[in-house]
Design a protein around this nucleic acid. Structure first.
Lengths: 112, 112
DNA sequence: ACTCGACACCTAGCGTTACTAGGCGTAGCG
DNA sequence: CGCTACGCCTAGTAACGCTAGGTGTCGAGT
């Protein structure tokens, strides 16, 4: 898998797993790995900055907590975050459909 | 459409249109725009450097020519380029399928 | 004659992004 | 007591697509 393939699509993935309920950062990574059958195995240094960026943008809100001595920051989608998710979803569908169309097109329609 | 969405996928698109026969740079841009129904409307400054990079990498070969006073550089896929295309195609399929899987997953299976 | 747009090529520099590589600290297992 | 998993963080890097500028030809319009 291309090293740059995720660029511009990571937000979508993260918003997407958070749409199913709040998660803390480490759990987001787990979810993405599990759901994608290990295809998306992201480093913490990849995910945390995204979470911060999305929170600053107003798409997520966070809350500190602790479970058995370990502190956690739990993230949840804001209303704006849900809207953003829908928009990114649509954007992805247009993008992937367009790529597929370009890929499918064969030479010319084989005249004769 | 996300500004970064193309990252890591542009090579695939360009190799793809060139798989159907040699084209010069400007024509590559036209092809992409047409095939994608205007979705991929790339600047020349985006495409030319990619063509150069792909040639240096050995995936394309180029040839200068002229049509009615205008000089053109025509690019064609090399054998390595075809292999690269197939690999990128597979890569794209894995990637897009994985994204779709992550997107589709709903909360939990709605127990009773 | 002159201008303007389409055609056709090019490159230096920029902004965004995901990633690397390091750091901090807790819990639990061998 | 070390190691691994858990759980958080950030500074710096590399790569990419894009912006913004450049060169030049041709044809149509005025």
């Amino acid at each position: 898998m291309n090293r740059e393939a995720l660029k511009g699509h990571l937000d979508l993935l993260i918003l997407s797993v958070l749409a199913d309920g709040p998660l803390h950062g480490y759990a987001v990574i787990d979810e993405l790995r599990t759901r994608s059958s290990e295809v998306f195995d992201l480093a913490e240094g990849t995910v945390y900055p995204v979470l911060h960026r999305l929170e600053v943008a107003g798409y997520l809100s966070s809350e500190w907590g602790a479970v058995s001595g370990r502190r956690r920051r739990s993230y949840r989608l804001t209303r704006a975050g849900s809207a953003r998710l829908e928009q990114q979803r649509a954007s992805w569908q247009l993008f992937s459909a367009s790529v597929n169309t370009v890929l499918r097109r064969k030479p010319w329609p084989s005249s004769a």
